[in-house]
Write a protein that binds this DNA or RNA. Structure first.
Lengths: 340, 340
DNA sequence: ACCAAAATTTTACGCGCGGAAACTTTTTAA
DNA sequence: TTAAAAAGTTTCCGCGCGTAAAATTTTGGT
């Protein structure tokens, strides 16, 4: 009992089972007979041995490492979806490692670069988008099974799963038109994320379908400080011409949070009530949008569905399944709150 | 030139340098002569070889892995500080891996458990706090050099670096008393984080020093959904007795965000201006507190100083330095905005 | 009880690198 | 110039495990 278990051989001796069988067990507990598995697991509790992960991965053709890459962890949206993805990887018996590109192209490249040496079994990545080094991601995805989520890059990876951003526009434009003035669209001039373009297109199409003239208000600003951009841009618009409509649909919740802040600074009451001067809506159902003043009307992304698709597609592929859909889009739901 | 470089031996041949010297170079580029280093680095560019990380770590007594553990990544405060810590690790030539306990004791334990097999050179951890399995963290810290940050656990790890939460109270209570009614203190009944206790104590001490009677308002709620707790708690207090003062100091910014939301729902104007009914202040300088309505007056934590202390203390110790201070506290700064 | 199939054991080799020992070459300093 | 120190080379072993092949044992169905 007091034997020092230093490696698999020691453990094999102590448990009375041959080392290759122990090895098989750790690769796949179901690969050994029930009675054997029970004996191993019993011994495991007695000696609390665990195989050396480096020695394992050195020889294995396929590790069980999964790289999870998101563009920014400072954004609670990605923090939340990353948490979801991580959980699912662990439940599937894989070992996820989380990386954030911090909105930076070079960092995204570096992450993939250092990921190479981890010999990952797969990669789940929400690319930066416009700024991504697409050639590099494509090259990587040809060596390592890769599933994209959130942000679409054409012809890269096994599959892509994300929100139907085009539909978002239809959904919320319908609602806004039904309940008040048709909205104008508030966005960044050069959005880093391709979803923003789909959202604009969705807005325009929805407006035209309802016989209204779409009106897009673009504000300048670079990077991922969306609240800041929304606030400064909002102040500028308010202080000059003002918005072309008393209803503003923001390209995403974080811009909306900034815009609400700008309206407050200019004492413009936000909301759908009589005494309000402007209605503001966003898209994403950002974790904080329930706590803005007033709470933000928005379109919720289906976190669960997106992370489920990413993980299940990847692991399905690893286990030999065929990829059925290259692109899977999930619908959003209208979240009605007081801001619009 | 078209030689396939499959391992260090191939690379040694191709570069005309012996394998042990190459090995030394990768362990510490400064351990080889300048001329040799240049030759290696030149060959490195030609062949883009990189050593097998698993084989390296299998044999090295000390890996260059650093575990970085935070209690929650959904909280932008931790996301931000984690980003800071990660960057410093990389700059120091180490390889950080980020983990979030997601506010969950079991997950924190699991993380440390799986971290064992990575043979990390060190651990940088912001513990959950009250919920942490202290015995486990202590045991871990005896095997792996560990530096705590943000949340203090007595007698664990090489050192602790965090904010002087006691001072926070003094700083903001002074300000609030100078500019209006002495504040009451708004907090969770059973805060998960020990910092909350220090903050309450700081508040009480500061109030007494100024000759005011401290008044603490505790609201119920479990977990890490502070905004939700602040909002629901705030609504309850408002709808019953109301706050004992027209100035409310919240234990942290996220509670304050929830409380501001509650005030808005009850149409209570927040701010320091004539027409406002309540002043609200927080503590943390949360990334979003600049965008609340009105922007939140708060105490900023010194992210840079905290992450710098954690990283430099750990790496200093790894390189043989003595630990000078077991506990290092950093002062906060008053951030004056419109809410108070 | 018998036999084929499945599981396990035995034996042996290799992965890519760290690191020690003994030796040779280059650099540094007097 | 010269000897000592430093750096590099050669040679070798070991880390802990994956994995293949052949021999052996166990299993399940008849």
């Amino acid at each position: 009992m007091e034997t020092k278990i230093r490696n698999m051989e020691d453990f094999a001796k102590a448990s009375g089972i041959s080392r290759p069988t122990i090895s098989k067990y750790f690769n796949d507990p179901n690969a050994v007979r029930n009675t054997t598995r029970e004996r191993i697991e019993q011994a495991l509790e007695t000696y609390d041995y665990r195989p050396n992960i480096f020695a394992m991965n050195q020889n294995r053709k396929l590790t069980r490492n999964i790289g999870v890459v998101v563009p920014s962890l400072a954004d609670p949206f990605f923090a939340e979806i990353a948490r979801n993805v991580e959980r699912r990887c662990i439940d599937a018996g894989y070992q996820p490692t989380l990386y954030s590109a911090h909105g930076n192209r070079d960092q995204e490249v570096e992450i993939l670069d250092s990921l190479r040496s981890l010999k990952p079994a797969g990669l789940l990545i929400a690319p930066l988008g416009r700024n991504s080094d697409k050639a590099m991601i494509e090259k990587f995805s040809q060596k390592v099974p890769t599933v994209l989520f959130d942000s679409y890059l054409p012809d890269i990876g096994l599959s892509f799963g994300g929100s139907d951003n085009f539909q978002f526009g239809r959904l919320i434009v319908d609602y806004l038109c039904r309940t008040g003035t048709p909205p104008c669209f508030f966005e960044m001039q050069n959005p880093a994320n391709p979803n923003a373009n789909k959202r604009r297109q969705g807005y325009i199409a929805a407006m035209e379908a309802l016989g209204h003239a779409p009106q897009v208000v673009s504000v300048t600003g670079e990077g991922w400080n969306f609240e800041e951009i929304g606030r400064n841009g909002g102040l500028e618009v308010i202080d000059s011409d003002g918005f072309p409509s008393d209803t503003v649909l923001c390209s995403n919740d974080r811009l909306a949070i900034g815009l609400i802040s700008a309206c407050f600074a200019r004492k413009i009451p936000v909301g759908f009530e009589e005494d309000s001067a402007i209605r503001i809506a966003g898209m994403d159902d950002h974790p904080f949008s329930r706590f803005t003043c007033p709470p933000l009307t928005t379109i919720s992304q289906d976190y669960e569905a997106i992370s489920k698709h990413a993980v299940e597609t990847l692991f399905g592929n690893l286990e030999g399944d065929e990829i059925t859909d290259k692109v899977v889009l999930f619908e959003g739901n209208l979240i009605m709150r007081k801001s619009a």
